[in-house]
Simulated assay, not measured.
Amino acid sequence: MSEFFSTYNTQIINSCIVFGIFFIIQLIARLVVRVIGNSKKIHVGRAKLVGRYITISFLFIAILIEAFILGVSTSDLALVFSSVFAVIGIGLFAIWSILSNVTSGIIMFFSFPYKIGDKIKIHDKDYEIEAIIEDIRSFQIHLRKDNGNLVTYPNNLLLQKAITLVEKDAFESIEDDGSDYI
């Protein structure tokens, strides 16, 4: 066992450094997301979801760096990634709208001016929707119309349409004690 450590001493130390830095950056990123969520009074579930997306992105970067540390050649990595991305690309081409909705959900976390409880009006050329934002999820937003009907609206379309704020905090029956927020 000591022979293993003496042979791969540099790789072990570099790997520990990479994963240590990954852990620290991941904690900082989650803290930043939590602070942004708290300042904008964003629901805890949305902040956790965006934190997971960021953690997964950093993990892929750390694994890529780790592959270089362990001596994997660039041509081998290029072959693996091109094969994986080709398969994923073909699979995701059929579900590209899901990816655009997830991306829109992340963008909405950082820059969407409306929050849960606001009554909004979505101006679409075919029809207009006036409803209260009940929940903002990673793929769609849940809107409650005045007649009680639940409307799910895709996040990517929400960023493409004009929206008017009708009433801020339109939930009359809910007491906001802050427990659902960061």
Rank of each mutant, 00 (worst) to 15 (best):
S2I: 04
E3H: 10
E3W: 07
F4D: 07
S6K: 11
Y8V: 13
N9R: 07
N9E: 12
T10Q: 07
Q11D: 08
I13M: 09
N14Q: 12
N14T: 14
N14F: 14
S15M: 08
C16D: 07
I17D: 09
I17S: 02
V18Y: 11
V18C: 07
G20F: 03
I21D: 05
I21C: 02
I24P: 14
I25K: 05
Q26K: 08
L27E: 07
A29D: 06
R30A: 13
L31H: 14
L31A: 13
V32H: 08
V32W: 08
V32G: 11
R34D: 12
V35E: 10
G37M: 14
K40Q: 08
K40E: 12
K40H: 07
I42Q: 02
I42F: 00
H43K: 08
V44K: 08
G45Q: 04
R46V: 08
K48C: 13
V50C: 02
G51R: 01
G51C: 05
T55M: 08
T55V: 09
I56Y: 14
I56D: 06
I56E: 06
F58M: 04
L59D: 03
F60D: 05
I61A: 09
I63R: 05
L64Q: 06
I65P: 11
I65L: 06
E66R: 04
E66V: 14
E66P: 01
E66G: 15
A67L: 12
A67Q: 05
F68Q: 13
L70E: 09
G71P: 03
T74G: 11
T74E: 15
S75L: 15
D76K: 10
D76A: 12
L77E: 09
S82N: 06
S82A: 09
V84I: 07
F85P: 05
F85H: 06
G91F: 05
F93N: 13
A94H: 15
S97N: 14
S97Q: 13
S97W: 15
T103K: 09
S104G: 10
S104A: 13
I106G: 06
M108A: 06
F109Q: 02
P113S: 06
P113W: 03
P113D: 05
Y114M: 04
K115S: 11
G117M: 05
K121A: 02
H123F: 09
D124H: 10
K125N: 15
Y127G: 11
E128S: 06
I129S: 01
A131I: 09
A131C: 11
E134R: 11
D135I: 14
D135T: 14
I136R: 08
R137V: 15
R137Y: 14
Q140S: 09
H142T: 06
R144L: 08
D146Q: 10
N147E: 01
N147R: 01
N147W: 00
V151I: 09
V151H: 00
P154H: 04
L157R: 09
L158F: 00
K161P: 02
K161A: 09
T164R: 04
V166I: 04
K168C: 02
A170V: 00
F171G: 06
F171C: 05
I174D: 01
E175V: 12
D176A: 03
D177Y: 07
D177N: 02
G178D: 02
S179F: 08
S179D: 03
